[in-house]
């Protein structure tokens, strides 16, 4: 089980094994694993982007900051709970994650209601600029409340490191990937099998027709925002617990990356967002392996531009015409 702080570290055996195997192959396996892990974060956030875009064709620029908000809500909840016994930390984390999901989901609904809904018929430029404004408000609002300094997350996931075909894989990584996977499967079930999910898909095809068929469009859009924001909030708490540091600008870069992932997978497509997240994770891992870490973002954005020019619909995307 993960412990809160473990003074003893499982180390020696790992490096010992590394020394005997073929270094090249190990590196590849490690790169793939690191890419998979980061990619699952991207995928969780990309889902929110993709769902919102699919349903109202809005690029929710503030989505990355919802992730940051989730991390700070988790931080506040854990801090107010006080000391948590090490054995309970995974349970406490799950509870706090659920709480954070509900609150960030609510925040998403409020943002949609007050910032985006009044502009539903307005030109895209106006809505996009509003989204930039919401992003700024969230970032600097949190900075005003919690201070501009980075905070250390109260719970730290730590655990054994396994050595699987040459890659170092830690227990927290496995747990987080499992949580991300479960959330994505639940979401897929929701969208494919429930009536709300059907309504979402129908609105993304033709909003007016859906309205005429008796679908409460506003309510469904609110739910979409709730789900997308809740997933980002969950990712925020997970990132806080795994990396241990949160700050008010943490959502900016990852929001861009998640958007890139959504585009690569095919924006508006839920499976595409998951796939795109993983692909971007790999692309970045290999990019920094080949060009050095300081060029990683340049590489990621270059891939985005390449994708947009050569295959704007993404890997799984369908042809989307611009709404005029």
């Amino acid at each position: 089980m993960p412990r809160r702080t473990s003074p003893k570290r499982p180390t020696a055996s790992v490096t010992a094994t590394v020394c005997f195997a073929d270094p090249k192959r190990i590196l590849m396996v490690q790169v793939i694993w690191d890419g998979l892990f980061v990619g699952s974060f991207y995928a969780l956030i990309a889902l929110g982007y993709s769902m919102v875009y699919g349903i109202i064709k809005l690029l929710n620029f503030a989505h990355g900051d919802i992730y940051m908000l989730g991390a700070f809500i988790g931080f506040a909840a854990l801090t107010s709970l006080g000391g948590i016994p090490a054995t309970l930390s995974i349970g406490a984390l799950l509870v706090v994650m659920l709480l954070s999901m509900v609150l960030t989901g609510g925040a998403g609904v409020l943002i949609e209601r007050f910032a985006y809904r009044p502009l539903r018929g307005a030109p895209r430029l106006a809505v996009l600029i509003t989204a930039v404004g919401v992003s700024f408000s969230l970032e600097y609002g949190i900075a005003a409340i919690a201070g501009p300094n980075p905070r250390a997350f109260p719970i730290r996931l730590e655990g054994n490191v396994f050595n699987i075909i040459g890659a170092r894989i830690s227990l927290p990584q496995i747990i987080l990937i499992l949580i991300a996977g479960v959330l994505m499967i639940l979401l897929n079930f929701y969208v494919q099998k429930t009536s709300t999910g059907r309504a979402m898909r129908s609105i993304s095809l033709d909003r007016n027709a859906s309205l005429l068929m008796g679908i409460n469009v506003n309510q469904v859009i609110s739910r979409t925002f709730f789900i997308g924001s809740a997933l980002a909030g969950a990712a925020g708490v997970m990132a806080g617990a795994y990396y241990g540091k949160i700050d008010f600008l943490m959502g900016f870069i990852i929001g861009l990356k998640a958007f890139t992932a959504a585009v690569i997978g095919g924006i508006g497509n839920i499976k595409g967002a998951m796939l795109g997240g993983l692909v971007l994770g790999f692309v970045e891992a290999f990019g920094s392996e080949w060009f050095g870490g300081q060029w990683r973002d340049v590489f990621a954005f270059a891939v985005l531009i390449l994708f947009l020019t050569l295959r704007p619909t993404g890997i799984l995307g369908e042809r989307v015409t611009e709404r005029v």
Binding site: L59, W295, D297, V298, F301
Partner: peptide
């Protein structure tokens, strides 16, 4: 390469180019 894109894609791509320029200057 970008002006044929949809308007909101264009926004993100220009943002990406802005970051690329800054990081390149830094490196």
């Amino acid at each position: 390469p970008t002006l044929r894109l949809r308007s909101d894609y264009l926004a993100i791509v220009t943002l990406g180019f802005g970051e690329i320029t800054r990081i390149t200057a830094n490196n």
